[in-house]
């Protein structure tokens, strides 16, 4: 029981939770504030992960060079997605972004791209230089079930610092005149256009900035693990949407808290169900069926949330109406 509890607490502050939070902040900017239906945040994360890993492994770039490559690719991706769709009706963006992100996943996982992307096996061994930046001496830190190696501590500090940084950037942006324009676009883009604002340019800027957050999240996500093409399916995007809607799409802090609640609850429910199965309390499930239940919970949670509390936990009901 202690372990189950501490697993859940660990999940709250895991670097993975932080990475998801950053990517979700990106869609908060897209959807919550600009009204863009980006269903391809997974592709921005994939660009971060693959751009960083390939630049490091195949081109031998230093850490910051690899980060710069990812960022550059992310901007290009945003243009590719935005140019055909941002002038069209909003559901076109949804279809194109989701199609593009699946397309990207097929491309990186094809065996013909194996020399570069590792194909279905993915990539690893690209984090050495990042950990080289670690000023924390070798050792074990923490107490009880919360002990971490110096790398784990470093990773946590870096990722949560970035979460705070991006949350602040979002908060400043949405409270600025720039934020006023994108919120206006969310409400009615024709009205904003009639007031002399270049709506297309603003949507593009929002897409780029939110996408960049996804890309940084993608880099953070793969530093402590390997790059696996299977991770960048539509599932990833839908998880992010669930977190975003959980916290409240039109709030700054919502995506962060949403991500923490999401992973905390998932860890808790998973561990409890597995414990139940192991102790014979739950007899109608096997352990591998438990693995599918978490997804059913996420799906059901998403449905109930959108129906009964579309503004999320922290959102003001007046602040978010879904348009369309």
């Amino acid at each position: 029981m202690d372990l189950i509890f501490s697993n859940a607490v660990n999940a709250l502050f895991d670097p993975m939770t932080a990475a998801y939070a950053i990517a979700a902040i990106g869609i908060a900017l897209h959807f919550g504030f600009t009204g863009l239906l980006n269903f391809g945040q997974a592709s921005f994360m994939a660009v971060g992960a693959y751009g960083f890993a390939i630049a490091t492994i195949s081109f031998g770039l230093p850490f910051w060079g690899a980060v710069a490559v990812s960022v550059g690719l992310s901007v290009i991706l945003a243009f590719l997605l935005g140019i055909p769709t941002l002038r069209l009706r909003s559901d076109y963006l949804a279809i194109v972004t989701i199609a593009a992100s699946e397309m990207l996943r097929y491309i990186v996982s094809t065996t013909s791209a194996q020399p570069l992307t590792g194909g279905p096996q993915g990539l690893n061994n690209y984090s050495t230089e990042f950990y080289g930046l670690n000023p924390i001496p070798v050792g074990t830190y923490g107490f009880w079930n919360f002990t971490y190696s110096e790398r784990e501590v470093f990773m946590r500090i870096v990722s949560w610092t970035l979460v705070v940084l991006f949350a602040i950037v979002l908060a400043i942006l949405v409270r600025s005149p720039w934020g006023r324009v994108i919120k206006g676009i969310r409400e009615d883009e024709d009205a904003v256009r009639s007031l002399g604002k270049n709506v297309y340019a603003y949507k593009m800027q929002s897409l780029i900035v939110g996408g960049l957050m996804g890309t940084v999240a993608g880099i953070l996500f793969v530093i402590p693990r390997s790059v696996q093409p299977g991770n960048y399916g539509t599932q990833l995007t839908f998880f992010l949407w669930t977190m975003l809607l959980l916290g409240g799409a039109s709030t700054v802090i919502g995506s962060v808290i949403g991500s923490m609640i999401f992973w905390g609850l998932l860890s808790l429910s998973d561990d409890l169900l597995r414990a139940g199965v192991d102790n014979g309390v739950i007899t109608f499930l096997t352990n591998d069926q438990v693995g599918t239940i978490r997804f059913m919970i996420v799906g059901l949670g998403l449905m109930l949330l959108v129906i009964f509390r579309p503004q999320g936990i922290f959102g003001n009901k007046k602040e978010l109406q879904f348009n369309g």
């Binding site: 949804a94 669930t242 997804f295 059913m296 799906g299 059901l300 998403l302 449905m303 959108v306």
Partner: peptide, 10 residues
């Protein structure tokens, strides 16, 4: 649409 995404997962 988002409800249908949830339903699809369930």
């Amino acid at each position: 649409m988002i409800v249908s995404i949830g339903l699809s997962m369930v």
